[in-house]
Computed example of a mutant assay.
Amino acid sequence: MFKKKISFEAIAFIAVLVLVFVGIETTMGTANFFKTLMLTAHDLLINTVFFIMAVAVLTGAFSSLLFEFGVADLIDFFLKPLIKPLFNLPGVAVMGIISTYFSDNPAIIALAKDKRFMNNFEKWQEPLLCNLGTSFGMGLIVSTFMIAQGNKMNVNLVPAVIIGNISAFLGSIVSVRMFSFFTRRKFGSVKKEEMLIPENYYRKTRPGSFMERFLEALLDGGKSGVEIGIGIIPGVLVISTFVMMITFGPKDPTKGYQGLAYEGIPLLPMIGEKIFVLIKTLFGFSNPELIAFPLTSLGSTGAALALIPKFIDLKIISPNDIAVFTAIGMTWSGYLSTHVAMMDELGYRYLTGKAIMAHTFGGLSAGVIAHLMYLMVF
């Protein structure tokens, strides 16, 4: 795609940049702004990114063992009968759920490149794989990270995380079903040949003894966790730093801005206060600052997770919020940053807008369901 060298968007971008810089400079001061920018990014890298990477390495190793020794196939066996009635997709679609839950959104693309796998789907069902996979991306990492925060909050967060997982599953149904309304109208129902993956197909395993397979699976899975950890660094450092700086004000209001980490202009809380009645009703949030998590999840789940420790330090987060964050974090796992690429890989880029619209409602539904379930259980 080519654009003119001198265009309106260049002028508009410079104008917005100057406007933002002047607003920040007059509020925080230039020196404080840049000092806070660097210190926040550095603290996020050291204390959050590496923690998430450690979680990703451990969950990656665990996931690899599940696949190597057939546990994932066992899960597939039990879940497959549910896929058709719930999602109106072939049973093999559960492979997409499992692979993305144990890794990240793009894992569904690897399956989509397999003609044997794709031959199970009708034309109108193929684009739905994008919303299905995105609904479960980084699911195990998000869940494990949330549970680990229980020590800081002095509360057992396992029930809240379980509620979040169930709600994300229900939200994925909303997303896929809503998107299927558009795809079915466009493509109609055209049956393909009988599926090319037999029900009793053999799974691939590594060569060698049990212990050799165990160690190889463990290390290979750990490596995939490192890749995920490295992959979230740009999102966390860029998006989270920006979100932090429009969420929290000066650390000590009596002293004003000191150029400390996590200081900034509390713009998001101002917006949150305007719609606080709505977000409290829908999600049960107790503080307007918490709106930062779902907004950040739209671009990067890893970046959104980086907000949790700060919320805990400020004591503005509750187990209900953890349940809602788990549901939204999984369902909205960076879909604005991955949907275009994933739909393009599937060959349906022109349907990206409708896919995003459906997934937006899916994420909102997941958050609302998590809040209602938490109220019913506790």
Rank of each mutant, 00 (worst) to 15 (best):
K3L: 13
A10V: 07
F13L: 10
A15V: 13
A15P: 11
L17N: 04
V22E: 11
G29P: 06
A31I: 09
A31W: 06
N32I: 08
L37G: 08
M38K: 01
L39C: 06
A61T: 12
S63D: 01
V71Q: 09
K80N: 14
L82A: 09
M95K: 00
G96S: 05
F102M: 12
P106F: 13
S135W: 00
G137Y: 05
G139H: 03
S143W: 15
S143E: 14
M146A: 10
M146Q: 05
N156V: 13
I163T: 09
S167I: 09
G171R: 02
F182I: 02
K192P: 07
E194P: 01
L196D: 05
E199A: 07
Y202P: 05
Y202K: 05
Y202G: 04
E212P: 01
L215R: 00
L215Y: 08
I228D: 03
G231D: 08
P234W: 00
V238H: 03
I239C: 11
V243W: 10
M245G: 11
D252N: 13
G256S: 10
G256H: 08
E263G: 06
M270A: 13
M270Y: 13
I271Q: 08
K274G: 09
I275K: 04
V277M: 03
K280N: 15
N287R: 03
I291Q: 04
T296R: 02
L314Y: 04
I316E: 13
I322P: 03
V324Y: 12
A341R: 06
D344K: 08
E345V: 09
L346I: 10
G347R: 03
L351C: 01
L351M: 04
A358Q: 02
H359Y: 09
T360A: 15
A366E: 00
Y374V: 05
